[in-house]
């Protein structure tokens, strides 16, 4: 089995690739690729992303990978991570960027007027560090991961799905969708590749996932 990690020039993809190799063992070949044909030929696709969404969208189009990603998202087990997850929505406030529109909804910045904890102390943006993940709906990728487990986040924007597709929520300070899923697609705001054993468990589940939900 081949798992393609889509490389469109945005950020450090070594972490994602190494973590997938670590959990896949002999079960899958992990291929870091910028070639649309390799994405098309893969059995599963991981769509990461770091940095600013306008740059990510521009690079995706400039490298001719947009259609390959859209095609993969129609049929194959597909994992979007961080900006890769945000890109799946219709629109982002970051640079007023249109997204891929795979999911209905938009990506917003943590609003400055809400960034205080219950004691009135300022909450920093980016939301950086380990936060709790609360299960809304059971999903095969979350098998073996306890409710309330902490994952590593680093982001200033988060997605707000228009449909009922949230499967995991986190809170900062308000509840927001931390992972969404529909059919063969799972998209997560935080970084499983940097989230120690729980994150590795999620990636291992993805390696063995048949794409059904």
């Amino acid at each position: 089995m081949k798992i393609a990690v889509v490389d469109y020039g945005m950020g450090n993809l070594r972490s994602v690739t190494k973590a997938l190799e670590h959990v896949a063992g002999d079960a899958a070949e992990i291929i870091l690729t910028a070639d649309p044909a390799v994405v098309a030929a893969a059995d599963k696709v991981v769509f990461p992303g770091q940095g600013a969404m306008p740059d990510c969208m521009r690079e995706l189009e400039a490298r001719g990978l947009k259609q390959a990603v859209l095609d993969a998202a129609k049929t194959k087990p597909f994992l979007g991570i961080c900006v890769g997850a945000q890109l799946l929505f219709e629109f982002s406030e970051e640079g007023d960027t249109p997204g891929l529109g795979v999911f209905k909804g938009k990506v917003i910045r943590f609003p400055a007027d809400k960034m205080h904890d219950e004691h009135g102390q300022k909450l920093k943006v980016p939301h950086m560090g380990w936060n709790e993940m609360f299960i809304l709906k059971d999903h095969p990728l979350w098998a073996g991961i306890p409710d309330g487990e902490r994952f590593y986040f680093v982001h200033s924007y988060h997605f707000v799905p228009a449909d009922d597709i949230a499967v995991i929520e986190s809170a900062y300070p308000y509840r927001f969708a931390a992972a969404v899923a529909r059919a063969n697609i799972f998209a997560i705001q935080c970084h499983p590749e940097k989230s120690h054993n729980a994150g590795l468990k999620l990636l291992e589940n993805f390696v063995h996932w048949n794409g059904c939900f």
Binding site: R14, S15, K18, S195, G199
Partner: peptide
């Protein structure tokens, strides 16, 4: 980076944008 799956920060002697790139690419 191939064995430790938590965030890694590196500092010391970073002078150019290209130094940043090389460290990020290393993991």
């Amino acid at each position: 980076a191939s064995q430790v799956f938590i965030p890694l920060t590196v500092g010391g002697g970073v002078r150019k944008v290209d130094d940043v790139r090389r460290l990020l690419n290393a993991g």
